[in-house]
């Protein structure tokens, strides 16, 4: 009898072989407390390391909104979107959730070498924990975002509850993006060098600070392409819910649901395929 037969007879599995997709997902679900706790601890430790603590989570996107809002406000002059302050605040805060998931998600495996190399658990929990952490921080920033919106004359209404499905879909999308970025970084570490530039590019091109229809009026094809860009859809839907901007397409909900679920599933599968690879140098 060969050793492989002996192993098979006793129910031993080849070490490192990735489990079936659905048992992998089930295993990850079993570690949901781990992902959640990791997200909470990480958030708290990042807060505790600074004198102002939790205030930083609020200050970071607020200062971004202030700086970029002021500069782009002056540059755009008459072409500013209507209701500019609320436009920028909603844009910057929502975008922050996306860019944070992408950038920290990319480092979720490579930045946790010691953990990945010593304990056996489904690696999927690490990028998911990052997205959870970003979600928690995003929810905290709502403390600033919502009052600002109210301050500029938009009273809360029942339709604000639509933010819940919107944030849910956005989280799915961000998780998919984070999973893809996490695996790519394992193969090509240099990616972490390019990602900040890439997110900056997206920040300036996602209609965070300007109205796509006005600025790109001479390029109707590009404007049409924005209708298929999930991050832009999220920003527009959020603005519609909170400030009732006229630019709004009901189809966005449909598109967004589709792309978010699609991106999440693709991210899961893409990440799972390389499960054996994580932790190796």
């Amino acid at each position: 009898m060969s050793l492989a037969e002996l192993a098979a007879e006793n129910g031993l599995h080849r070490v490192g072989a990735r489990p079936h997709f659905f048992s992998y997902i089930a295993e990850t679900w079993g570690r949901r407390q781990f992902a959640l706790t990791l997200a909470r601890y990480r958030m708290r430790s990042s807060v505790e390391a600074n004198r102002l603590g939790l205030v930083w989570i609020l200050l970071r996107p607020s200062m971004n909104a202030l700086v970029y809002g002021a500069i782009f406000g002056i540059l755009q002059a008459g072409r500013r979107p209507p209701d500019y302050a609320a436009y920028v605040v909603v844009g910057v805060f929502f975008f922050h959730f996306f860019s944070g998931s992408l950038q920290s998600g990319a480092k979720s495996i490579t930045g946790n070498g010691a953990l990945v190399q010593s304990l056996a658990f489904p690696r999927l929990t690490l990028p998911l924990a990052i997205v959870l952490q970003e979600l928690l921080e995003f929810l905290v920033t709502m403390i600033v975002m919502l009052p600002v919106v109210v301050l500029f004359g938009h009273m809360p209404g029942w339709d604000w509850f639509l933010l819940i499905p919107l944030v849910f879909l956005f989280t799915l999308f961000n998780a998919g993006v984070a999973l893809i970025a996490a695996r790519l970084t394992v193969h090509v570490r240099d990616l972490t060098q390019i990602l900040p530039v890439f997110t900056r590019l997206l920040f300036y091109s996602s209609g965070v600070l300007f109205n796509v229809n006005t600025i790109l009026a001479n390029h109707p094809k590009i404007v049409a392409a924005f209708d298929y860009y999930p991050v832009y859809q999220v920003l527009q839907l959020a603005r519609h819910i909170l400030t009732e901007t006229p630019i709004y397409h009901v189809e966005y909900w449909g598109y967004l649901t589709g792309t978010s679920i699609f991106t999440f599933v693709v991210g899961l599968v893409f990440f799972w395929v390389a499960e054996e690879r994580y932790g190796r140098n």
Binding site: L3, A4, A7, A8, N10, G11, L12, H13, R14, V15, G16, L38, Y41, S45, A49, N112, G113, A114, L115, Q117, S118, L119, A120
Partner: peptide
């Protein structure tokens, strides 16, 4: 190949799990 009943845990010299 290596076969095992479960995925083993490895304790090596080196960094903490999550040092911060």
């Amino acid at each position: 190949a290596v076969y095992a009943t479960s995925r083993p845990n490895l304790l090596g010299i080196g960094a903490a799990l999550i040092s911060e």
